[in-house]
C-alpha cells in the first residue's frame, strides 16, 4: 500500500470548493476546463471517484495530464496528479501512453499516481518504463533532501510491476526487500511473492503483522489480502488491528482461494476463511 503523506491525503478526497455544486458527469467533464483551477482539480477527482467511464471524460482527463496552469509553490502539478489517479480507475487503455509520459514528470506525486494507475490498467507495455524508474537500484533509493519522499515512487512502481506479473523485473526488485523503509520492503516482498509464488515472501509479510507500528501492521494486512496468501488467514484474524482491516484482508484471501479453483463446491480452506471472517463481524 502506498504511503500517503498529509499533502496527498488532502488530495485524495478534496473538500468541495466554495461555489462548487454537486456534480453531474457532464458538468465534471466541462469543469476540467473551467477557469477556476480548484473546480478543475475537484472535477478530476470526482470523475475517478464515481468511475465515469464516458469517453469524453477519459479524453478530458488525458488532456489534463499535460496541464501547465495548476502549479504548486514547489513546482508540482496538482491537476495532473488527480487526473493520473482518476485514469487508473476508469479502465480505459487509451490512458496508457499519457500515463507512461507522466513517469518522467518532475513532480514525484505525478510519477507515483501514474505508476499506480498503470498497475491498475493491466497493460504490460508500460513495464520497461516502470523498470527504468528503478535505475541505480537501492543505492540511489534515498530520501530527497528536505522532502518527505524517496527519489522515485519505488513502492508504487514495485507494486505495479508485481501486479503486472513483470518477471523480467525480478532481479531488480529483489534487493528492495531489504530497503531501509519498511513500506518499500513490504512492497518488494509482496511483488516477489506475486512473481515467484515462493512462500518465504508470504511468511515475511506474516512476520510483519507483529510490527510495533499499527500502520505497518495494517500495510502488511493489506498486502497479504492483495496477494491472497491463504496460509496467513489465522495470523491475520489474530493480529492486533481493527476488525474492518482484518475482514478486508481475509476477503482478499477468500477471493483468491475461490478464483484458484473451478470446483462448484467450496474448498475446505475457503470454509475455514469464512469461519474466521464470521468471528470479525
Amino acid at each position: 500500500m502506498v504511503d500517503f503523506n498529509s499533502e496527498q491525503l488532502m488530495e485524495r478526497s478534496p473538500e468541495m470548493p466554495v461555489g462548487a455544486e454537486p456534480l453531474t458527469a457532464d458538468q465534471a467533464i466541462a469543469n476540467l476546463r473551467h477557469e477556476d483551477l480548484s473546480l478543475r482539480y475537484y472535477a478530476a477527482w470526482w470523475l475517478g471517484k464515481y468511475q465515469v467511464r464516458d469517453s469524453a471524460a477519459v479524453d478530458a482527463l488525458i488532456a489534463a495530464l499535460e496541464d501547465e496552469s495548476d502549479r504548486t509553490e514547489l513546482g508540482g502539478y496538482p491537476l495532473r496528479r488527480n487526473a493520473a489517479r482518476a485514469l487508473g480507475k476508469l479502465a480505459d487503455p487509451r490512458a496508457v501512453s499519457g500515463l507512461i509520459r507522466c513517469l518522467d514528470c518532475s513532480d514525484f506525486y505525478v510519477r507515483e499516481a501514474a505508476a499506480q494507475s498503470l498497475g491498475m490498467l493491466g497493460d504490460r507495455t508500460c513495464v520497461p518504463h516502470l523498470i527504468s524508474l528503478l535505475d541505480g537500484g537501492v543505492e540511489v533509493a534515498q530520501f530527497v533532501p528536505g522532502r518527505p519522499h524517496l527519489a522515485q515512487p519505488y513502492e508504487a512502481v514495485i507494486e505495479s510491476l508485481g501486479a503486472l506479473g513483470a518477471t523480467e523485473a525480478l532481479m531488480l526488485i529483489r534487493p528492495f526487500v531489504d530497503h531501509a523503509v519498511a513500506r518499500v520492503q513490504y512492497a518488494a516482498i509482496r511483488a516477489m511473492y506475486q512473481l515467484t509464488q515462493e512462500s518465504v515472501y508470504g511468511e515475511r509479510l506474516v512476520q510483519a503483522l507483529n510490527s510495533n507500528d499499527v500502520q505497518l501492521r495494517r500495510t502488511a494486512l493489506s498486502d497479504l489480502g492483495a496477494i491472497g496468501y491463504t496460509p496467513a488467514a489465522e495470523a491475520i484474524a489474530a493480529s492486533a488491528t481493527e476488525n474492518s482491516f482484518k475482514l478486508f484482508a481475509l476477503k482478499g484471501l477468500l477471493e483468491h482461494q475461490l478464483r484458484s479453483t473451478s470446483e462448484e463446491s467450496l474448498a475446505p480452506r475457503a470454509i475455514e476463511i469464512i469461519g474466521l471472517m464470521d468471528t470479525l463481524l
Partner: peptide, 13 residues
C-alpha cells in the same frame, strides 16, 4: 461481491 456470494452459498449449503 465474490466473497459475499461465497458466504451466501455456504449459508445455503
Amino acid at each position: 461481491d465474490l466473497a459475499t456470494q461465497a458466504r451466501a452459498k455456504f449459508a445455503c449449503d
